[in-house]
């Protein structure tokens, strides 16, 4: 009943639309939390604020800085949202997926790493000390979260016995991976925040360096970067559903709705965590990542590997 199959080609076009809607929901929820902290009422204006802000940025003039490297800067800016949409291609909605790649999990990983290059190019290309520092910080952060992230993905692949996302969903028919891979799930959620440079992992765009990578970007460029960040966070939240939360499995409701409900719930959780934490300092997080997260996720992978070997009756 949980079998996921390749959808028709036109479903590829549906991915950016759905991902955009999910991203707008996330951004609107963030606005609601902000408005509550501000002591303002929750009105339609607050919910529509992300759209209104997008409109404002569309009308705003783009600016460029003396001696900036426009080729690299533009490439980086465009790549951020593109990478997010490409990463989301392998996420199944209900029992259909836009592209059921045989190496879907590695694909997601690779597309997420594209953000490294994109953000670095955008930061460097803007020819500003803040952009440079932002790009620099993001790479340091990447080196700290990437290995736990990869180990979390490897754990899922081990449990599923495959790199195909639909196989991971099928393997969770009886028991969701989140139940016996909790460490991998937490590591994945942390890296979801980190790879979309949001929440406690927003050093690359921190207010202490006046927006970092974003500092010099206005108008459409800024819109692409900010939207790209939300799309990436949404893609990661959506990806956690087939990887850990049993895909479309659930009672009563149709499968596609369950996928959406779970994705929205994970996204809501991530946005809420954002509002409850200060930015993690990079040197501390680097040490935490290497000394705590990597050993823990390795241990988790070991446990899962032993269980899988035991279940299949040894070699």
């Amino acid at each position: 009943m949980n079998a996921v199959s390749q959808g028709p080609t036109w479903t590829v076009l549906l991915v950016p639309v759905l991902l955009g809607v999910l991203a707008l929901c996330g951004a609107a929820f963030a606005r609601v939390l902000d408005a509550r902290a501000d002591g303002r009422g929750i009105s339609g204006g607050v919910l529509a604020a992300p759209l209104a802000e997008s409109g404002r940025l569309l009308l705003q003039q783009r600016r460029a800085v003396v001696a900036s490297d426009r080729l690299l800067a533009r490439t980086g800016v465009v790549l951020v949202p593109v990478a997010a949409v490409l990463a989301a291609l392998v996420v199944p909605l209900g029992d259909r997926t836009a592209s059921d790649l045989s190496i879907g999990i590695v694909w997601f990983n690779a597309m997420e790493v594209v953000t490294w290059a994109a953000l670095w190019m955008a930061g460097w290309g803007s020819n500003s000390v803040w952009g440079l520092l932002g790009g620099y910080r993001f790479v340091v952060q990447g080196l700290s979260y990437e290995l736990p992230h990869m180990f979390a993905l490897i754990t899922v692949a081990t449990g599923a016995g495959s790199l195909r996302v639909s196989d991971a969903v099928a393997a969770q028919e009886s028991l969701w991976f989140v139940v016996w891979m909790p460490v991998a799930f937490v590591a994945f959620l942390l890296s979801a925040l980190a790879l979309s440079f949001s929440g406690p992992f927003d050093t690359a765009t921190g207010r202490d360096i006046v927006g970092g990578v974003l500092a010099e970007y206005s108008g459409v460029d800024r819109l692409l970067l900010v939207a790209g960040r939300w799309l990436m966070l949404s893609a990661a939240a959506a990806m956690s559903v087939p990887l850990f939360l049993g895909g479309s499995g659930g009672p009563l409701l149709p499968g596609w709705l369950w996928t959406l409900v779970k994705a929205v719930a994970v996204l809501g959780l991530l946005v809420w965590v954002r509002s409850r934490t200060a930015t993690l300092r990079m040197d501390r997080f680097a040490e935490f990542g290497w000394l705590v997260l990597i050993p823990l996720t390795l241990l988790q992978a070991l446990v899962v590997a032993v269980v899988v070997v035991g279940m299949t009756g040894g070699m």
Partner: peptide, 24 residues
């Protein structure tokens, strides 16, 4: 995947040794 990561790390080394951003 590997090459993106390697090239970005290479970029960090460039910042270390040659810090001026952008510029042609």
């Amino acid at each position: 995947l590997m090459m993106i990561m390697e090239m970005v790390v290479m970029a960090v080394f460039m910042i270390m040794y040659m810090m001026n951003p952008a510029g042609l």
